[in-house]
């Protein structure tokens, strides 16, 4: 079987003329998963406006199978932490993450969620990076990141989804299960 990354849909070249598709279960499931990433509507600050712009006209995140922003964590696969997380907000972010069903992915969008950004030194009430409370898969820098950068972040999440192994509970090998606190 050819490398899945060479294929447009990542389904392998197992299709025959009789309409039979031969592929690995992993590949099939990962393909469906990465083609319908449902992010959670979770705008915190300035970055949320760019996240909205990514979902709206001009950038149109639906083209990449990631359109439906869900209002509830229970229906979401991807948490885009878009904006500054304050200490007051941190327990809520953690709870929302816990409420998401597995497999779940987290994207830290913007400088504030990556490290505290402009608030790192004097921001007494700002959490210095969201990775202190939830495990982060992809970091998107910028203040705020352009919509193109957010889309690139989504592609990285999709790449990560492609590498999932169904029976391997540790997922992707290097993903920490224990939260960094």
């Amino acid at each position: 079987m050819a490398d899945i990354h060479d294929q447009e849909f990542g389904l392998g070249d197992g299709a025959t003329q009789d309409g039979i598709l031969l592929t690995r279960v992993d590949q099939l499931i990962n393909w469906t998963r990465k083609s319908s990433v449902w992010p959670m509507t979770f705008g915190l600050a300035c970055c949320a406006i760019e996240m909205m712009a990514t979902g709206a006209s001009s950038y149109d995140i639906d083209r990449f199978g990631s359109g439906p922003f869900r209002a509830t964590p229970r229906q979401a696969d991807l948490m885009i932490v878009a904006g500054t997380v304050s200490h007051k907000m941190a327990p809520r972010v953690k709870r929302l993450y816990d409420q998401m069903p597995e497999p779940k992915f987290v994207m830290a969008m913007g400088a504030c969620t990556v490290s505290g950004g402009p608030y790192i030194k004097h921001g007494y009430h700002v959490l210095k990076g969201v990775d202190r409370i939830v495990p982060v898969d992809v970091y998107v820098p910028g203040c705020p990141p352009r919509p193109e950068a957010l889309l690139e972040g989504l592609f990285r999440i999709q790449e990560k989804m492609e590498r999932e192994r169904l029976l391997d509970k540790t997922r992707c090998g290097a993903r920490p299960k224990v939260l960094v606190e």
Partner: peptide
């Protein structure tokens, strides 16, 4: 207050 980013403190620090 869930987005309290200490604006006023920053202005007297930078």
């Amino acid at each position: 207050g869930y987005l309290h980013r200490c604006f006023e403190k920053h202005c007297e620090s930078v």
